[in-house]
Amino acid sequence: MTFIRSIFQPKEFTGRHMLLTMVAFFGVIITVNLMMARFAVTTWSGLVVPNTYVASQEFNTQAAQSRAIAALGYDVAFEPDAEGLIIVLTDARGEPAYASSLTASLRRPVGTDDDRELVFAADGAGRYRADGALAEGEWIAHVTAMRGDETIYKKGRRFHIGGNGSLKP
């Protein structure tokens, strides 16, 4: 019984106890902050454009060009498969469209490890194919379709590839 009583007896809280408590508390805080700072510096840079001032000066011109291209009414649909990516290009009426060249810049929303540039080859009736299977997860594709010297489609689209390689909504 005296053993149990001795466990529950209040003990003296000294300056040494307070020092150890404060060192442990701030040690945990500083360690977590250093780890998070390291992850922030060693992962994705967050850089979207190399020079934001130049990008801001070109914004109105690029916005006008985007509106003119969008007014043409072309659209794309993605069809990933095991061998690569198929893009279906359609006109304003929803019919297959022809482009002399079709390219896509594929990026991950975070990170640059899987980024790639794809050049598509015509595969008949508005279908364009590029080799290179896409890994599961989120992707952003900046697609540009040209007919001669005219840009008929230029837009960024976000899509998700499922575990079985299919497109997810």
Rank of each mutant, 00 (worst) to 15 (best):
T2M: 14
F3G: 14
I4R: 11
I4S: 09
I4E: 11
E12H: 13
T14Q: 03
M18V: 10
L19V: 12
L20D: 14
M22T: 11
M22C: 12
I29C: 06
I29L: 13
L34Y: 07
V41I: 11
V41G: 08
T43N: 13
W44M: 04
S45K: 05
Y53T: 09
A55N: 01
S56M: 13
Q57R: 09
Q57I: 05
E58A: 08
S66A: 15
R67E: 14
A68P: 05
I69F: 04
A70P: 07
A71T: 13
L72V: 06
G73H: 02
Y74E: 06
V76S: 04
F78A: 00
F78I: 03
E83L: 14
I86Q: 10
I87D: 01
V88T: 15
V88A: 12
T90S: 10
A92T: 02
P96T: 03
Y98N: 10
S105Y: 02
R108P: 03
G111I: 00
D113F: 05
D115V: 01
R116F: 00
R116M: 02
V119K: 11
V119L: 08
F120I: 00
A125M: 05
Y128Q: 02
R129S: 00
A130E: 00
A130W: 01
G132M: 13
L134W: 00
A135D: 13
E136W: 05
V143Q: 01
T144L: 03
R147H: 10
R147M: 08
R147Q: 14
E150T: 05
Y153C: 02
K154G: 06
R158H: 11
R158C: 03
G162S: 11
G163H: 08
G163V: 07
N164G: 13
S166I: 12
